[in-house]
Design a binder for these strands. Sequence first.
DNA 1: CCTCTATGGCGAA
DNA 2: TCGCCCTAGAGGC
Length: 286
Amino acid sequence: MPEGHTLRRLAAALAAVFAGSHVTVSSPQGRFAADAAVIDATLLVGADSAGKHLFVEFEHERIVHVHLGLIGRFDIVTGVEEVPAPIGQVRLRLLASSSTGSGAGSSYADLRGARQCELIGTARRDEIVGRLGPDPLRADADPARAWARISRSPRPIGDLLMDQQILAGVGNVYRAEVLFRHRMHPLRAGRTLRRGQFEAMWHDLVGLLGEGVRNGRIDTVRPEHTPEAMGRAPRTDRGGGEVYVYRRTGQPCLVCGSRVRTDVLVGRNLFWCPRCQPAFRTRALH
DNA sequence: CCTCTATGGCGAA
DNA sequence: TCGCCCTAGAGGC
């Protein structure tokens, strides 16, 4: 679930549902109980995201900083007559009850499995955001900052793309997919890229992440490679969109038919097509 | 029941 | 580089 698009979508949804309301804040699981008590029944002002960080802002500049980590979820349920008791390990619950009896119902959001959930102020928020590289989803992002780092680095581009201090919001799926779409081998050193290649990838990420925000899932295949266009079965992974190489080890590449390869880079699974993303530049064939 | 995996990231060594 | 944190779902026995 959680790459940058998930957090941006979540921020928008939380703001739409809760902003302007005095929200009941609780921690059924208990781990956030003391902080929850501080902001309970106060005004929720808004929500924003930066990279994979989520900031839910309450009045008096009190901010709940959430990082979902690998397995966290923040599920929003709107318009229910009865608010159910929490199921499982709910660390944070936001609840807005309708005051009128016009049938609008109540809405709540449950946070589970997050790596981080803490109450902070604006200074700390600025510090967290300040450490992040440009986020393709933010209009104020400056890709030149990322290029300055990448163009000087001997590290593999597949590593650099996942480094949140260099480029914020890209995770393992977008990394694999954007490299495929640009026919770039994941182990190629950052400093060997041409500026135009980076700019094309950045532009592509802006579009792909934006589509992820709209769709709530990661889709990266071009129209000619969709299941409908190719007459193949759609991907069945839970919540997964249509992708070229991510988690398709051993399966035929949608473009050339080669078997998709996998390896581990900096502790994360890497996926690529050996023919579409050659390790070394090959001369054009005559 | 158990084990494994996961779209993250941290700190210790 | 490794272990560890967080949780849930899938699959094996």
